[in-house]
Computed example of a mutant assay.
Amino acid sequence: MGEELKLLGAWANPFSRRVEIALKIKGVEYEYLDGDIIHNKSALLLEYNPVHKKMPVLVHNGKPIAESLMILEYIDETWKDNPILPRDPYKRAMARFWAKFLDEKCVPALWKYCWSLGEEQENAYEEACGVLKILEGELEDKKFFGGNNLGFVDITANSVGLWIVVIQEAGGFNILTPDKFPRLCKWAEEFRSCPVVKENLPPRDRLYALFKARFEKISGSKDAELASRH
């Protein structure tokens, strides 16, 4: 029986890229439908994810699954080969715990720091360093968060593995550096070097150009706001 599998995603969206990495690890064939992550809420997206209206959405035989962590678990349960979640119940629960930490604590704190300016960014620095320190401690001396093999938490941490690295380069600031977080930086290199990851991350130069343009726009808006006060 043939299966129909579609992924509605966006090239620069780290949550969308998580799903692509998982599908490639599983060796599953799928059709990729690219959309605009900010401006274009297509009819297809509204049909498949009317609640959050966000990508990614995985559509399996006409049934949509939204939210990247839910999609990753669905993929792992549907296609049993090359598991991304541990089979041991305790380790599985811990992987879910750290994935939730990444999405609810780590990514928001880092995004707030990266996209703030001046005093607001300075105030966000301590919290951002705090979540990175927690991740650094969890890694210990492991190659990946789950041990020797790429898994659920590593895939979830892709924002730290590439996006934060490129954003800080484009913004001209440093938070994730080898002197502050040697284990995380080593993990990020290992993560990006994995063939299945390397083939399914957005082009670094294109991502850099996107973020550079965004920083210039934010800076220009801030300058215009300050000028209007005088």
Rank of each mutant, 00 (worst) to 15 (best):
T78V: 09
L207T: 11
Y90H: 11
C194F: 10
S221C: 09
G2E: 15
K80A: 09
P178N: 13
E4A: 08
V51K: 05
V131G: 02
E138R: 10
N149S: 14
N49M: 10
Y113Q: 02
L72R: 05
G171S: 12
K6S: 02
A66W: 01
E67A: 03
A170T: 02
P182C: 08
N40G: 10
Q121V: 04
A22Q: 05
E216F: 04
E126M: 11
D34H: 13
V197I: 11
Y32W: 05
R96P: 04
G220A: 12
G130N: 14
A128Q: 05
Y208I: 05
D36S: 11
D103E: 14
L58S: 01
S221F: 07
N49K: 12
A109F: 09
G62S: 04
P182H: 08
L139E: 08
K24M: 05
Y48D: 00
L7Y: 00
L44Y: 01
E138W: 05
Y30R: 08
P89G: 12
L44N: 00
I84V: 04
P195E: 10
P108D: 09
E77W: 05
K217E: 15
R192M: 11
V160F: 10
I25F: 05
L102G: 04
E31A: 09
S42E: 12
V59A: 06
V19P: 03
L85G: 06
K222S: 14
S159W: 15
P182M: 07
G27S: 04
S221G: 13
Y208C: 08
M94I: 14
K133N: 14
V166K: 05
N82P: 03
F191C: 02
L176R: 03
D223Y: 12
E4I: 11
L58K: 00
L226W: 06
D223G: 03
K100Y: 08
F145G: 03
G137R: 06
V19G: 03
I71Y: 02
N40R: 14
L5F: 02
N61P: 06
V165M: 13
G35D: 11
H230K: 13
E189K: 15
P108W: 12
L162P: 03
E120M: 07
C129S: 15
A95C: 04
N49H: 10
A66V: 02
W115S: 07
I25G: 00
L23R: 03
I37H: 09
R214K: 12
R192C: 14
M1G: 15
K53L: 07
K80N: 10
R96F: 03
R214G: 06
L33H: 11
A227I: 11
V59D: 01
Y208S: 11
P203N: 03
L102A: 07
R214V: 02
A188K: 08
Y113A: 01
